[in-house]
Structure formats: structure tokens, C-alpha cells
Simulated scan of single mutants.
Amino acid sequence: MIRGRHQEPAGERESGLADEAEGFLLAHAHRDQARREAEELCAGMPWLTTAQAEELTGHYVRRRLDVTRDLLLTTALRAGQLRQEYEARYAGLRRALLKRHAAGVCAVLVCVGGASALACLLAR
């Protein structure tokens, strides 16, 4: 272990690497798709010069990637919010269930104690 650094378990490290590779491939796929769409758009405008078509393609790809990034960040933020809400709700439900079980066990113990006391009184 290197001093001062936290070492991750092998499974988490591999999973993180796989997630990073997947994100990289997904980003490239989005960029390639945006480039194809921009090229199709430019093909529909034959009056553009090559420089204008390249400029339009670059602008379209940048704008499209910005929109995609914003959408993904918004989605990730909302997913985090929902996770917190669900975890809080789950914790509340667990507490309520524990209280009900504890009350049920107490009721059973009271009944058993009462029945035991009644049995002792009747046995005398």
C-alpha cells in the first residue's frame, strides 16, 4: 500500500474502470452521431462552401454535446435527489415496522405473562 493513499478493492477498481470506458465510448458515440447529423444538414445546403460547412458542423457538434451534457447532468442530479427521497422513505418505513413489531412482541409477552399468572392462580 502506498503511504497516504486509499487503496480500493479490486472489484470496485475494475467496475470504475469499466464505467469510465463505457462513458468514454458513449461520449464518442454521441459525438459521432452529432457529426453525422451535421453532415446531413450541410448536405441539404449545397450553397455552403467547404469552410462554412465545416464551421457549421463544428458548431452543431459542440452545441449538441453541450445539450447532451446538460441533460445527463440534470438526470444524474435528479437521480441523486430521488435516491435520497427513497432512502429517507425506506428508513421511515423500517422504523415504523420495527415499532409495530416491538409493540406486537410486547403484547404477546403481556398475554403470555397474564396467562402464566392465571395458570399459577388456578393451580393453587
Rank of each mutant, 00 (worst) to 15 (best):
residue 1 M to W: 10
residue 1 M to H: 03
residue 5 R to H: 01
residue 6 H to A: 00
residue 6 H to D: 10
residue 6 H to P: 07
residue 7 Q to E: 06
residue 9 P to H: 12
residue 10 A to W: 06
residue 10 A to M: 11
residue 11 G to C: 09
residue 11 G to W: 01
residue 12 E to A: 09
residue 12 E to K: 08
residue 12 E to I: 05
residue 13 R to D: 05
residue 13 R to C: 01
residue 13 R to H: 03
residue 14 E to Q: 10
residue 15 S to N: 12
residue 16 G to Q: 11
residue 17 L to A: 13
residue 17 L to Y: 04
residue 17 L to P: 05
residue 18 A to E: 10
residue 19 D to Q: 05
residue 20 E to I: 12
residue 20 E to T: 04
residue 22 E to W: 12
residue 23 G to T: 07
residue 26 L to S: 13
residue 27 A to Q: 04
residue 27 A to E: 06
residue 28 H to N: 11
residue 28 H to R: 13
residue 28 H to P: 00
residue 29 A to G: 05
residue 29 A to Q: 09
residue 29 A to C: 02
residue 30 H to E: 09
residue 33 Q to I: 06
residue 33 Q to T: 06
residue 34 A to G: 05
residue 34 A to S: 14
residue 35 R to D: 06
residue 35 R to A: 03
residue 36 R to L: 12
residue 37 E to V: 11
residue 37 E to A: 10
residue 38 A to C: 00
residue 38 A to K: 04
residue 40 E to Y: 00
residue 40 E to W: 07
residue 42 C to V: 08
residue 42 C to T: 03
residue 42 C to W: 03
residue 42 C to S: 06
residue 45 M to S: 14
residue 47 W to P: 04
residue 47 W to K: 07
residue 48 L to G: 01
residue 48 L to I: 10
residue 50 T to E: 08
residue 51 A to R: 00
residue 51 A to Y: 09
residue 52 Q to I: 03
residue 53 A to D: 06
residue 54 E to L: 12
residue 55 E to I: 05
residue 55 E to K: 08
residue 55 E to F: 15
residue 56 L to R: 06
residue 56 L to A: 05
residue 57 T to K: 15
residue 58 G to C: 13
residue 58 G to P: 02
residue 59 H to G: 14
residue 59 H to M: 15
residue 62 R to D: 03
residue 62 R to H: 07
residue 63 R to V: 14
residue 63 R to D: 03
residue 63 R to H: 07
residue 66 D to Y: 13
residue 67 V to T: 13
residue 67 V to Y: 11
residue 67 V to E: 13
residue 69 R to Q: 15
residue 69 R to Y: 14
residue 69 R to C: 00
residue 70 D to Y: 13
residue 71 L to T: 11
residue 71 L to H: 14
residue 71 L to A: 14
residue 72 L to T: 10
residue 74 T to H: 09
residue 75 T to F: 15
residue 76 A to L: 11
residue 76 A to E: 15
residue 79 A to P: 03
residue 79 A to V: 12
residue 81 Q to F: 04
residue 81 Q to M: 14
residue 82 L to Q: 12
residue 83 R to H: 09
residue 83 R to N: 06
residue 83 R to P: 01
residue 84 Q to Y: 10
residue 85 E to A: 03
residue 86 Y to S: 15
residue 88 A to M: 06
residue 88 A to Q: 15
residue 89 R to I: 14
residue 90 Y to C: 15
residue 90 Y to R: 15
residue 90 Y to V: 01
residue 92 G to T: 05
residue 93 L to T: 13
residue 93 L to K: 07
residue 94 R to C: 15
residue 94 R to V: 09
residue 95 R to M: 11
residue 95 R to P: 02
residue 95 R to C: 11
residue 98 L to P: 04
residue 99 K to V: 15
residue 101 H to M: 12
residue 101 H to F: 08
residue 101 H to Y: 09
residue 102 A to F: 02
residue 102 A to K: 04
residue 103 A to P: 01
residue 106 C to H: 07
residue 107 A to K: 03
residue 107 A to P: 05
residue 109 L to F: 13
residue 109 L to M: 05
residue 112 V to E: 00
residue 112 V to Q: 05
residue 112 V to F: 05
residue 112 V to L: 04
residue 113 G to E: 01
residue 114 G to S: 02
residue 114 G to L: 00
residue 114 G to Y: 00
residue 116 S to R: 02
residue 117 A to D: 10
residue 117 A to L: 08
residue 117 A to S: 05
residue 118 L to A: 07
residue 119 A to D: 08
residue 119 A to V: 02
residue 119 A to G: 01
residue 122 L to Q: 01
residue 123 A to K: 13
residue 124 R to H: 07
